[in-house]
Design a protein around this nucleic acid. Structure first.
Lengths: 151, 151
DNA sequence: AATAAATTATTAGGCAACCTAAATATATAT
DNA sequence: ATATATATTTAGGTTGCCTAATAATTTATT
């Protein structure tokens, strides 16, 4: 990394630092942050005229392998945050929906996420917040493209 | 997360996306990225008139608990990337330094990191790259401060 | 219709990157 | 001399993922 473009070095340093950041801090003592992410994505995908979300849809939404979702849903189900039901049209599929407890949990989590990120948005200022979000998305695009090109 | 400030939502979304990003992709098949980070920090801390870096210094530099460093150094040592020596002034301490193999490895890793981040800097443009690095650092500051205030 | 191929989810087992608590050895302070 | 502090290691655990193999069912092909 020697005597090269200092911007590059600065970028790398900030990435390292940022990466350590635990911004996903679970506000619910009883839920891991991966579980909260699952609840969020169920909430987001859910619509009133379906009996629940398919495992594979959660897996796609979170870009996580399906056995991972199985495990997370197992734990969420045994703790009463979600319910599994059989899909009547496709008996291979499983439909998952939030219980009232689940709804309550994401209500709280949502509150606390909002508070944290609202604080950040205030701290950075609206313009910078927008900029940051855009730059992060661009960075994501860059690395995804790069990955495809290399392999 | 309903009908609230859209900037906040956008920030959160971009964080989620960015967080998944595997920008630390280890270029050396035989080294995990945590191990590369250790090698980097040894290289950075090293100075010609010491016989090596103390475990605790690596641990502080990377902000990782010392048993974690012990494990990483164990593996790096058995694979010949670093060498442990006793500290003659303080016999509790251990000094770690890079072997030639270790130097070679971080040379290559450094090359490949630089290439990736240089590409990013070009992709974003110099001004935006600087901005991104600054905003990430500010974000780090914000969350660190928040953590302290809450607990 | 029968068989093959694809899809959905689960089970089993593993890995990376961390952590804490307790143990060991040595150094420093009282 | 004893207590306390520091440096490292050992032992064992957690989180968040993964792949390969299996079971059940659906869809496509002959």
């Amino acid at each position: 990394m020697k005597n090269r473009n200092p911007v590059v070095h600065k970028l790398l340093e900030s990435f390292v630092q940022f990466h350590k950041l635990n911004w996903k801090q679970s506000p619910m003592v009883s839920l891991k942050s991966s579980e909260i992410m699952v609840l969020f994505s169920i909430k987001k995908l859910m619509n009133p005229d379906t009996p629940g979300i398919k495992m594979s849809d959660i897996s796609n939404a979170l870009r996580v392998a399906s056995p991972t979702i199985t495990q997370l849903i197992n734990s969420l189900e045994t703790n009463g945050f979600v319910e599994r039901t059989m899909d009547k049209e496709d008996r291979r599929a499983v439909r998952v929906k939030l219980t009232d407890k689940g709804e309550g949990a994401i209500e709280k989590a949502s509150e606390s996420f909002y508070e944290a990120f609202n604080g950040l948005a205030e701290f950075l200022g609206e313009e910078n917040s927008n900029l940051l979000a855009d730059l992060l998305s661009q960075t994501f695009t860059y690395f995804e493209k790069r990955k495809k090109e290399i392999f």
